[in-house]
Write a protein that binds this DNA or RNA. Structure first.
Length: 1033
RNA sequence: GCCAGAGUGGCGGAAUGGCAGACGCGCUGGAUUCAAAAUCCAGUGCCCGCAAGGGCGUGAGGGUUCGAGUCCCUCCUCUGGUACCA
């Protein structure tokens, strides 16, 4: 047998680890703890993807090495097991989703164990476990029980929420409603994708181009009562606390942008008292456009000619003046009154350039503002906008649309009336749902203004430096969004943008017209799904005598958790937009408590819920009393290293952080952040494919003549004719210039690239098959050897066989592969290490150790290959080098390492053997070549700081340096201390030579010394290969 | 559009501002073999040259530096993310 046979070795050691519970972590760490977490997988029916073991191997290496270095390691695994595919399967097969889920989990578990990861399997969990769901629901109740205290910036129990006297006076129900309005979990109407044909609500990703992904049926948006989580309350903290995290900057940036904090100002524009649209009141007399408040010369108030009408609704100057005076006394109100349109802007410095305003179609003031004469067109526009999905509003609709409401607001800074439009490029959900439009200095406003022929007034002078045509900007023919100097802004002329913003914001505040404001792109988290296969909400709706909901809810008592999913006779949609749980059995759906009948909440939680806190449950997964014992939590948290895919950079990581912060505020956890260090593994693509194209006639078409049309089919650029993509055997391709061409036909460019693995492309690599053919150790090693962990990289089966070759060589280096049993190779001996062998060993130890620390697994493996190449060549291979090598290899390829360790005479697993250490002194080479750059008139070496080479080089007058003076004389001065190898050579051991290198193109100095004695030999090469030693100066 | 990351041999990739291409794949030659596989040895960036040797080389162009794959600026290409957030 003793050829390397992973199939037997791997099974053997997996059984050993399992039997000995080798990787069980203690309840509490002893000594320094290390919590290393993998993003747990969704157990799909397809089994493990080769992308999974990439991060899992990386963390496993870290953990195994850390154990050997004496750390107490927590390394658990589990399953994110709720999810759509299981429910789809349930509908198709009419079996409970739990069944297929458990099957898939079992398969994933088998595959993970097959790869030899050192998880503590006793901590395994699945988010679908009934006991896990209990605590997910419990956390939801914590969130439900919490309100956010803005002053303290902290979540607090709802009982601590101050209740205003008038609410208290209105009675118990009013108090409860008031509390409900302030909870972090609250109900709200939110649109869902309702597909009448399928009779079900679809997730966003199931809707493609406004049609259902399955079947292509029309999808409409319908408002439905849903649960929301008030993540926006934590926006500030979620953003601020990113600073201290050891996360990739790109991920932090992604989260910052997602949170999207902006500072600016809210400003109130006066719209006049009064009535519900229609005819003007006494306060808002019709004013002829172009007269009155508008200033001469400039393009008046910007009402498009064709929509001007005398019955438009415009506040009178007198009313405005009165309002302004009142405001100066009353200050700026928290909530805008009926008489103003409140807008949010990040550019208060451009207030003087506002030539129109836009409110979102859903804005509550639309009705009130629109005069009767314009009702029709406004209403029509609103309906069109409402019918559009989010997608239509953005991608498809490039051109901006809108309609004039017929109303005007008065610009508070100059008293000018400004026409108010509605347009769907303004979103009700951001800011105040209304903007002042400054087409001169905002891209979107500019586009809109051009579209509807609205005047454009420049109020920021870009100056000459800016990247725009200044004259065009000043003339309103080009938009400029940068900072500049204020113009056309009476009272603020010449102010530079940042100072102007501050100043006018302060001025508006003193006049009670505005205030500084902060806004976030982040929206509250839509936390319910109309699905069966998710955690039920532990919420009961009160019913009145007639069986209708009263609007009041109560939480399920903690002792009654978990609320389990009911048994359903079938999982088919019931054809209404309400969640599937609506067809639950009566006894589940309508519990009776204290004689009162309730209806259970039938929405379920989204898949994110379970993954928000699993890292906490691992620590104490069998605790029936608490979600996690505080003592255990304090000892192990935070997670020291979290590795997973970049696709979770925003949502999962933001949601987890949010839950964690709520739990922190409520005293359940002790760290403000869950994941101290985060690393994203790169994507693994399929094997590189070579593609050529042929037209209908079968003639080759060069890849550069091909473009991709809609639906992503290739067509010829010239005539749009469809072409066929043909897979090309690499043997029929050759490199030509930048890319590949058809062999023998350089005119035909081919396309060479790797694609994402997908079933449809047929390029999915199955880990089971790789393990069968090459072994788990080879798969692990290959995944680490492919390239940097964070990089996207293509798969290559040849690469797998390459690392397998390394394992074979490592095996033969130690084992006699011709013997019948596992026996050491005859070359293995007990000799002492020669200086050179010792150096190779210590170099390897150092490199591998340091590479693991910086997650440079590919180079660590390269160093071990070098070790093997060196020692395999020797006829006598000392154990003293082989044994430490096996330990170094063990985190990467643990099965073969255990087997080799055993062959070397050890009886126990190497899992807790001390990690090898290196001795710097052993690394010193007694002969090094030092390159010296010579460059004619002024050749000096580097800074002289580099440990192994800096001794030569650096300016001539620098200590420990050699160099060439301006005259072109090379001074080879070498000091032993410059080597940085402590004790190997003492300072003072130096030699000096000078060579004339005026004719030299490069020089090479070879420095040889024994310990303590320095000597230098130098070869400098001139243009003709002339050795300059022959020509000393 | 915007944001982020990346462009180095035939391929995957190495290289704290200091000999570009470590290591692996592939390829070429040799040993072993009846033969093949496997294994071992040698070679392998490109161009010129029998050779010695020489020239050119890290997406393009500029710059900083004694010295740039590495730092700065401009541009090109690719990958990923994102979509009117006022």
């Amino acid at each position: 047998m003793p050829r390397y046979n992973p199939a037997t070795i791997e099974k053997k050691w997996q059984a050993y680890w399992e039997e000995h519970e080798t990787f069980r972590s203690p309840r509490l760490p002893s000594g320094e703890k290390l919590y290393v977490l993998d993003m747990f997988p969704y157990p799909s029916g397809d089994g493990l993807h080769v992308g999974h073991p990439e991060g899992y191997t990386a963390t496993d290496i870290i953990c195994r090495a850390a154990r050997m270095r004496g750390r107490s390691v927590m390394h658990p695994m589990g399953f994110d097991a709720f999810g759509l595919p299981a429910e789809e399967h349930a509908i198709r097969t009419n079996t409970p989703p739990r069944e297929s889920t458990e099957r898939n989990v079992a398969n994933f578990r088998r595959q993970l164990k097959m790869l030899g990861f050192s998880y503590d399997w006793s901590r395994e969990l699945a988010t679908t476990d009934v006991e896990y769901v209990r605590w997910t629901q419990w956390i939801f109740l914590q969130i439900y029980d919490t309100w956010f205290d803005e002053a303290l910036q902290r979540g607090r129990p709802i009982v601590e929420l101050p209740i205003p006297a008038e609410v208290k006076a209105a009675g118990d129900a009013a108090v409860r409603r008031y509390q409900d309005e302030h909870r972090l979990a609250y109900q709200s109407e939110a649109p869902v994708n309702w597909c009448p044909a399928l009779g079900t609500v679809l997730a966003n990703e199931e809707v493609v181009d406004g049609k259902s992904e399955r079947g292509g049926h029309p999808v409409e948006r319908r408002p439905l009562r849903q649960w929301m989580l008030r993540i926006t309350a934590y926006a500030d903290r979620l953003e601020r606390d990113l600073d201290a995290l050891d996360w990739p900057e790109s991920v932090k940036l992604l989260q910052r942008n997602w949170i999207g904090r902006s500072t600016g100002a809210e400003v109130d524009f006066y719209i006049g008292e009064g009535g519900t649209g229609g005819s003007p009141t006494s306060a808002d007399l019709p004013i002829d456009v172009g007269s009155g408040l508008s200033t001469g010369g400039q393009a008046t108030s910007g009402t498009p000619r064709d929509v001007r009408a005398s019955h438009d609704r415009k506040p009178s100057e007198a009313a405005f003046v009165a309002w302004k005076a009142a405001r100066a006394k009353s200050r700026y109100p928290k909530k805008p009154g009926e008489d103003v349109l409140r807008i949010y802007t990040t550019r208060p410095d451009t207030l003087f350039g506002a030539t129109y305003m836009v409110i979102a179609p859903e804005h509550p003031l639309v009705d009130r503002l629109t005069p009767a004469a314009r009702r029709e067109s406004v209403e029509a526009y609103r309906q069109r906008a409402a019918a559009k999905s989010d997608l239509d509003r953005t991608e498809l609709a490039k051109a901006k649309t809108g309609v004039f409401t017929g109303a005007y607001a008065i610009n508070p800074v100059n008293g000018k009336p400004v026409p108010i439009w509605i347009a769907d490029y303004v979103l009700m959900s951001y800011g105040t749902g209304a903007i002042m439009a400054v087409p001169g200095h905002d891209e979107r406003d500019y586009e809109f203004a051009v579209q509807y022929d609205i005047p454009i007034v420049a109020v920021v002078d870009p100056g000459l430096e800016a990247d725009v045509d200044r004259n065009a900007v000043l003339a309103g023919r080009e938009v400029f969004t940068g900072n500049g100097v204020a113009i056309n802004s009476p009272g603020y002329e010449g102010e530079v943008t940042p100072a102007f913003k501050k100043k006018i914001t302060a001025d508006l505040a003193t006049q009670g017209l505005g205030r500084e404001a902060v806004n976030y792109k982040l929206r509250d988290w839509l936390f319910s799904r109309q699905r069966f296969w998710g955690e039920p909400f532990p919420i009961l709706h009160e019913l009145d005598a007639a069986g209708n909901k009263t609007g009041l809810v109560r939480a399920v008592e903690e002792r009654d958790l978990p609320v389990n999913l009911p048994h359903l006779d079938d999982y088919k949609p019931h054809g209404r937009p309400e969640p599937p749980l609506d067809k639950s059995p009566e006894e589940w759906l309508y519990p009776v408590i204290d004689g009162k009948r309730y209806k259970r909440e039938t929405n379920t939680m989204p898949q994110w819920a379970g993954s928000c806190w699993y890292y906490l449950r691992y620590l104490d997964n069998e605790n029936a009393e608490r979600m996690v014992d505080p003592e255990v939590e304090r000892a192990w948290m935070p997670v020291d290293l979290y590795i997973g895919g970049a696709e979770h950079a925003v949502l999962h990581l933001l949601y987890s952080r949010f839950w964690h912060k709520v739990l922190y505020d409520r005293g359940v956890v002790t760290t403000p952040e869950p994941f101290a260090k985060l690393v994203n593994q790169g994507m693994i693509l399929g094997e590189v494919e070579m593609t050529g194209y042929r037209d209908a006639a079968g003639a080759w078409v060069s890849a550069r003549e091909v473009k991709f049309g809609e639906d992503n089919t290739p067509v010829r650029k010239a005539d749009g004719q469809a072409v066929e993509a043909v897979k090309i055997d690499p043997a029929n391709a050759e490199k030509h210039g930048e890319g590949f061409v058809l062999k023998g036909n350089a005119a035909i460019q081919l396309e060479s690239r790797a694609f994402k693995m997908s079933k449809s492309r047929g390029n999915v690599v199955n880990p089971d098959q790789v393990v069968r053919e090459y072994g788990a150790d080879a798969l692990r090693l290959y995944e680490m050897f492919m390239g940097p962990l964070e990089a996207t990289k293509p798969w290559s089966m040849d690469g797998v066989s390459g690392v397998r070759g390394f394992l074979d060589r490592a095996w033969r280096m130690i084992i006699d592969d011709r013997a019948d049993d596992v026996r050491l190779s005859a070359a293995v001996c007990d000799d002492a290490l020669s200086a050179e062998q010792n150096r190779v060993l210590h170099k390897t130890i150092k490199a591998v150790t340091e590479d693991i620390d910086r997650l440079g697994f590919n180079t660590a493996i390269a160093r071990m290959m070098e070790f093997t190449n060196y020692f395999t060549k020797l006829d006598r291979r000392p154990r003293a080098a082989l044994a430490p090598f096996v330990l170094l290899l063990s985190p990467f390829a643990p099965h073969i390492a255990e087997e080799l360790w055993e062959a070397l005479g050890h009886r126990e697993s190497l899992a807790y053997e001390p990690w090898p250490t290196w001795d710097e002194a052993a690394l010193v080479e007694d002969s090094i070549e030092v390159p010296v750059q010579v460059n004619g008139d002024d050749a000096r070496g580097g800074e002289g700081g580099r440990e192994d080479r800096g001794a030569i080089g650096g300016e001539a007058d620098r200590e420990g340096a050699g160099g060439a003076g301006a005259a072109g004389v090379f001074c080879g001065e070498v000091r032993g201390a410059g080597l940085g190898a402590r004790g190997a050579a003492r300072s003072g051991d130096w030699a000096q030579r000078e060579y004339d290198i005026r004719r030299a193109t490069h020089a090479r100095i070879k420095w040889e010394y024994g310990l303590g004695t320095g000597s230098l030999s130098c070869s400098c090469f001139g243009r003709n290969g002339h050795d300059l030693r022959d020509d000393p100066h």
